[in-house]
Every structure is written in C-alpha cells, then in structure tokens.
Design a protein around this nucleic acid. Sequence first.
DNA 1: GGCCCTTTGTAACGTGGATTGACAAATTAC
DNA 2: GTAATTTGTCAATCCACGTTACAAAGGGCC
Lengths: 200, 200
Amino acid sequence: MATPRTPYPQAARELLRETLFGAARDELERRAWSEITMSDIAAAAGVSRQTLYKEFGSRKEFGLAFVIHEGEHFLDDVDAAVKQHIDDPRTAVNAAFELFLRAAGEDSLIRILLSDDGTGGMLPFVTTQGMPVVQWATARLATTIGEAWPQAPEADIQLLSEALVRLAISHITAPSGSPDTTASSVSALLGPFVDGVLDS
Amino acid sequence: MATPRTPYPQAARELLRETLFGAARDELERRAWSEITMSDIAAAAGVSRQTLYKEFGSRKEFGLAFVIHEGEHFLDDVDAAVKQHIDDPRTAVNAAFELFLRAAGEDSLIRILLSDDGTGGMLPFVTTQGMPVVQWATARLATTIGEAWPQAPEADIQLLSEALVRLAISHITAPSGSPDTTASSVSALLGPFVDGVLDS
DNA sequence: GGCCCTTTGTAACGTGGATTGACAAATTAC
DNA sequence: GTAATTTGTCAATCCACGTTACAAAGGGCC
C-alpha cells in the first residue's frame, strides 16, 4: 500500500468526525432527525456537546456533513461502475445510474431519510436546501467522468454531471419506476449528448 | 454487529498507540532497531517525543509492547487453528505449532527482527530479556487451550502452554528443520502428556 | 396570545494531554 | 579522551476538550 502513514493529529480528528457520524447513524436508526438533539449525538459519541459544535458549526452544518458523508459511499460505487465501461459512455451512464438507484433504494438510512412527513426531517438537505449537496455530488461525479474521459471538455462534463445528480436525487426522492427502467430512460434521454461529448 | 460504539477518548488513545506501532514498523523495514531513535518514531507518527515517553515509559518498554503487539496477530491465528481440532488435541498442537512456525517464518518483520548480529537489535526481547513475552504468550495460549478444553486442570494447561511457547520461540530463533517436521517432533514429544490432560 | 420547557448556539473558565525547550546522564563516534 | 548523539526527565506553555452558564429561538399547552 502507498500509505505514507497518516500523522496522529489528522487521524485523531478524522476519528472524531467518524465517531460522531457513526453515533448519528445509530440514533437515526431509532428516532427521526427532528427528535435527535445535539446532546444525544455528542453523548453517544462519548464527547461533549461543545466539541461537536466546534467541529461542525451548527446543527444544520452537521446534518449536511453527515448526508455528504453517507453519500461518499454511493459515489464510490458509481465511480467504480463508470470506470468499468470506459469503452461505452452510454452504457456507463446507464449502469452507474441504475446501480445508484438500486443501492440507495436498498439502504436503510436512505429510506429513513426519505420517510419525512415534513416535520423537521433531513429531506431539505437534498431538496430545498440541497445546493451544497448538489454541488458536492456534481464535483465528485465530474471528477469521475473527467478521469474516465480526459479528452471531454470541462464545461460539458460539468453540465452533464449536474443534470445526472439532479435527476438522481429526484428519482430517489420520488421514484417513477424501477431502477432499470428509470436508468434506461435517463440514458436514452442523455445518450445523444453523452455520445457527442464523451465518445472517442 | 454488536458494537455499542467505542467512545471517542478510548478510540483516540488506541489510535495513538496504533499509530506509534505502525510508525515503528515502517522504520524497522528500513533501519535496524539499534539505529532507530525515539525521535524517529515519534516524528514518523506525527507526535512529540514526550508523548511517546508518556505512553510507554522507556525505549525498552516500547520495544516490548511493540513485539507483543506484533505477536497478537500470530496468537490469533494459533487460537483459530487450535479450535478447529477440539476433537483431537494432539493434532491441534501439531497444526497450531506448524502454522505458527510457517507464518512467523514468512513474516517480513520477524525475519528482520531475527537478523540480529548482536549490536542492539530486538532479539533480547524474546530471549535473554524475554520473560515478559513468554509470560504474555503463555497466558494468551493458556486462555486458548482453556477455552478449547474446559475440563483440563489449570496447572497442566499452564505447564503445557509455557513449554509450547518456549519451544516455539526457540524454533523461530534457531530453526532445526522445516515447520512440518518440527511440528511433528514437538507433537510427538508432548503428545502423551497432551492426551492424558486434554483428551476427554 | 401568553407561559413553560426544551434545544440551540455562544461564551467563560477549568483541566488534562500534548508540545516545546532545556537539561544531566549514558552511550556512541571519532 | 573529547565531541556528538541519544536517552530519560522536568518545567513552562499551548491547545483541545469538558463543564457550567446563559440568551435566544422555537414548540407544546392552556
């Protein structure tokens, strides 16, 4: 492995964040986001409330960081799926999109997150207040695409990435069909653009 | 999983020790123990020298803890091997002993540790000053045996464990034959005793 | 509306662990 | 034998975290 060994201070900080995220996840499996206090999370992590506030400025920021943190996992999978189809961009889009929908649909946390009756859940993080998530996911996806097809124009990659992210978020919050039919529709819709931009 | 979530403070302390051990291992893959200073280890871990001295009192204590830490891995394997042959104690001894010799012989760190020309290496930790290691390994092995054969007398388990540990250390520091022939010899030697004590 | 209770967010203060710098003693190099 | 390095220890300082307290902002209840 090419690990130059993470210095302890960074590792400790990362451990702190990871512990807090893990504590939040545990709590979320029992109560709703609106019923979980910052004290609960801090206590579950074995840390004071102030430490939590210093690491993440506010409740909203923590929620945001948490959602993004959970999302990393999905984007990793998407990255891998895309890079298995470098020879065929349209198939790559289809495969990655379907994988994402399926994985998200099966994830317990996502389902909890979406079972929001409107009383202070986490849904706003990916919808009405979702810009940070959209921007983060777009940048992440653009990196993946840029690595897979280095010759593609940056602007086109950006455009495609954001559209895919928005479509993906839309379809997990409000699914219209099965993952495979949805993925087919999206790849048919964006296929022509994708071919023009990414096909070598 | 039955993880009640490790509180951050404990996890951080464990992380510190783990980082220091990892740093030491990295250094040992390049220089000999005698050429590695406490400063080197601390720096490689991203920590001050005092932190290292506070966690482990002295250079010798750190070396000892390090050797034991590396040994954990082998004893885990031995534990698993033993418990695959609860029905046949003599075979268990044979299998575990051979596994240990083979694993130790293939481990890069062990080989480095043993390539000691007498100028301040780590060999004394398992030989002339090896009592702590022997006691630790004996206790660990006795636990394994006690769990596998609960009806065996404590004193006999202790006696057998210590002998096995000493034989194992001797044979990795000065091998007389291949792992399988050595293991056969040992199990033949201790077989009668083992049968009398452990066989149900 | 008005009241009470909880939670959020911030601030002040105390504390313990970590860093820094310095030092004598022991070891090693020359 | 001297110089240089390293070990082991100490004091001073710094910084992250914990504790307590408090104003402000909802949320529930009457």
